[in-house]
Amino acid sequence: MKSVALKILGALVVLWAAATFTFFVQAALPGDRATLLLNQDSGQIKKRTAAELAPINEEFGFDKPLVQQYADYLGGLATGDLGISYQKKAPVTEIIGEQILPTVWLTLAALVAAWVIALLLTLFTTRRSRVVKTLGSGFETLSAALPHYWLGVILLVVFAIQLSIFPVEGGTSLYGLILPALTLAIPLAGFLGQVTRDEFENVLDEPFITSARARGMGDFEVRWRHALRHAVLPAITLSGWALGALFSGAVIAEIVFARQGIGQILVTAANARDVPVVAGIVMVVAFVYVIANLLVDLAYRIVDPRIQT
């Protein structure tokens, strides 16, 4: 129980640090924020008079002392308020909320697909004939090195445009999820596969594997029931990082496949210097990392029951 409390406390500290960082980056950015806002609205770039700026400063609270603004920001976060978008004048929570689900689905689908590919590769190609082994580890090395952007375009051109198996613009349908998820999953699968393969090879030399064989267990069952569980532990640890990286990296797949999602908003907001939206997304990503790491912890405990003591 004590360790759980510590973990949650640690997670809160991470979130607080992320919030503080994004707040002070916003405040420290060059240029007056009110001027920026007005210029963005009017599409002109010019110096504004104090009279023009006053209502904006009033509305967004830019006239308050920095400490007060920081306190307000943290207070807002605690109640789920991420501020108002400069560009759309709508609450950031609303903007993100509308777009977050497609990204979450994409991320999860990619993670699951990556795991499935990595596990199949490990199960069927580790310690096999030289050809199979080389093919397996070769695929992993190659795919781990593929850039998402290039892979996405290739998948799009081959499967959606040339072969017309999948829709070019999938929208949010399940069918349309496949190509973007694979775009993110294949490089990750290569990476997870490499880690798992190394561990799997080591585990296959352990005496308990010999014990299982000596009971009359066949090769596939030995791999599936005994070795795999030991071999996935390092990859589980990496999955926390991977989930966060997928979430923030989803933007590429979303752009290539013209999907809705947080990535799209992030790009638009970053281009327009819509700082509250960018900061909001940073907070969401930080939150995803925190949750992902808690999940990893949980998964690790399920796979390795020794930890519970």
Binding site: E206, P207, F208, A212, H226, R229, H230, P305, R306
Partner: peptide, 10 residues
């Protein structure tokens, strides 16, 4: 020998 490593730890 050594059941600690000859039994599946998990």
């Amino acid at each position: 020998q050594d059941a600690l490593v000859s039994l599946d730890q998990l």
